[in-house]
């Protein structure tokens, strides 16, 4: 059984159907990239996987546990699924170190010293050891996003969901964040990444899905999707991305 198994998932907000009959399998240690226009359902799909949104129909199984039947302990589930958002969403009233240690201490019950030691290791790894005592508004966007990644990693998740994490960044700050994700991929982290960074997706993904209007229109290995897409909509989308110079 795949590590993440999504079957016939449908989700609407009122009249608006954002996911239609989605099927997706993610193997352990694989990286899956979701591409597609804004509003195609990438973010909603990620949010369904850690139950920030409830699906209307279909089934999602993570690590052998069915999460869509309403019986799952969502807090326990979220401890093993990290998510990073486009807008970083750091806690502005806490220092970097407090941001990273809050959940390990309060949700997993780690003693303060242990959580802090671990957090400092992570900050070292993302190159921000010197910022441990700073508040988020003193950091650049790229630094904030790296802290957000460290905050998620501090829970030692088995799966990371990245929701367009470079979309809000100034162009010159994108690479420092992508470099970190690249490292994560190399370390064998299972990830589902919604992204507009096509060359990055091509480089790190084991599998790419093109979403269009809530449907996975086309999927396959990155070479196939980016070099020989079969669907006209995929070709059109990639063509427009190329024109915009984002490839």
């Amino acid at each position: 059984m795949s590590f993440v198994s999504i079957q016939s998932v449908t989700k609407s907000f009122g009249e608006n159907t954002v996911l239609r009959d989605i099927d997706l399998q993610v193997e352990l240690h694989n990286v899956v990239c979701l591409i597609g226009a804004s509003g195609s359902g990438k973010s909603t799909l990620l949010r369904c996987i850690n139950v920030l949104e409830k699906v209307d129909a279909g089934e999602i199984v993570v690590d052998g546990e069915t999460i869509t039947n309403g019986k799952v302990d969502v807090n326990a589930l979220r401890r093993k699924i990290g998510i990073v958002f486009q807008a970083y969403n750091l806690f502005p009233h806490m220092t970097v170190l407090q941001n990273v240690t809050l959940a390990p201490r309060k949700s997993r019950g780690f003693p303060k010293a242990q959580a802090e030691a671990r957090a400092r290791e992570l900050l070292e790894r993302i190159g921000l050891s010197d910022k441990a005592g700073e508040y988020p508004d003193r950091l650049s966007g790229g630094q904030q996003q790296r802290v957000a990644i460290a905050r998620a990693l501090a829970m030692e998740p088995k799966l990371m969901l990245l929701d367009e994490i470079t979309s809000a960044l100034d162009p010159q700050l994108v690479s420092e964040v992508l470099e970190l994700v690249r490292e994560l991929a190399k370390s064998g982290m299972t990830m589902i990444i919604a992204t507009h960074e096509m060359s990055f997706a091509r480089e790190v993904a084991d599998h790419v899905c093109f979403l269009d209007a809530g449907v996975i229109l086309e999927e396959g290995p990155p070479e196939q999707i980016f070099s020989a897409p079969t669907e006209p909509r995929t070709r059109e989308f990639l063509g427009r991305v190329l024109e915009a110079g984002r490839m």
Binding site: N50, L52, R78, F85, A87, F91, L102, A103
Partner: peptide, 25 residues
């Protein structure tokens, strides 16, 4: 809302999210 979502996504309960993230702000 995104602050609550970020807190909950880290595995904090509703009340923990209120206590440590929402109410202090």
């Amino acid at each position: 809302q995104s602050q609550r979502m970020a807190a909950r996504s880290l595995g904090l309960s509703y009340m923990q999210a209120m206590r440590y993230v929402v109410v202090p702000q």
